[in-house]
Simulated assay, not measured.
Amino acid sequence: MGDQCVFCSILSGGLPSVKVAEDATTYAFMDINPATEGHLLVIPKRHSKDLLEIPGDDLTAVTLAAQRIAKAVIGELGADGVNLLNCCGSDAWQTEFHFHLHVIPRYRDRSKDRLQLPWQPGIRGDAHTLSALGGRLAAALK
């Protein structure tokens, strides 16, 4: 997958990156198309296409690394909050098909933060639909 995958190419040294953190399982680097100041990505070193494919141990390692980095963006960069974002599938905005978590520092200062929500939180869903979909998913998970 290395030649076809941008992130595998970064890991192999074929493409440059600004490394933030690395351990035996994960690699974190600055996003070259940042939504906010300090926006970065955390990836597993072992290639997995997306959230549906990544082994649990790699997902755990990436999530724990993202949490550690989120604490640093609050403390070091003075962010007012942090979003963790994963996009799974092209219809969910995934553009690089190597699992990754975006660690996105959030700022009240809009000059540092151009990210806006794509939906409006606080608008309640239909109770019947929520119940029906929740029931279907609960049954599928048994």
Rank of each mutant, 00 (worst) to 15 (best):
T129K: 09
Q116N: 15
V73Q: 08
A138R: 13
T60C: 09
D113V: 01
D31G: 00
L52R: 12
G75H: 11
A61T: 12
N86P: 05
S90C: 03
T25E: 14
I123S: 09
I74L: 13
I32K: 10
S111F: 06
S48I: 09
K19Y: 00
D126S: 12
G89Q: 13
T95H: 14
G135C: 03
E37M: 12
E53N: 10
V73C: 01
D80L: 09
H100P: 05
M30I: 13
I54A: 04
H102D: 10
D109G: 10
A28Q: 01
C8V: 02
A72I: 01
Q116Y: 05
S90R: 15
Y107W: 08
W93T: 15
A65V: 11
P34Q: 03
R136K: 11
R110L: 14
H98W: 02
A24L: 01
V73I: 00
W119R: 09
N86H: 12
F29H: 02
R46M: 13
K19S: 05
G75I: 03
G14I: 08
L141G: 10
D80E: 14
E53C: 05
K45H: 07
R46F: 08
L130Q: 14
C5F: 06
S90G: 15
L59V: 07
T60N: 10
V42C: 03
A70C: 10
W119C: 01
D3P: 13
L101N: 07
L117I: 01
D50G: 15
C87Y: 04
I69H: 11
Q120D: 04
T95K: 12
D126I: 04
C87K: 07
F29G: 00
A72H: 00
G13L: 03
H98T: 08
A72Y: 00
A35H: 01
V62W: 09
H128Y: 06
S90H: 14
E53D: 14
A65W: 07
R114L: 14
S12V: 03
L77C: 08
N33Q: 14
I74Y: 08
P16G: 05
S90W: 11
L137P: 00
F99D: 01
T36E: 03
L85Q: 07
I32N: 12
F7V: 00
I32Y: 10
K112G: 05
E22N: 06
K112T: 00
A65S: 13
R114W: 15
R46I: 14
A79E: 06
R136P: 00
A35I: 03
R106L: 05
A92R: 13
K19H: 02
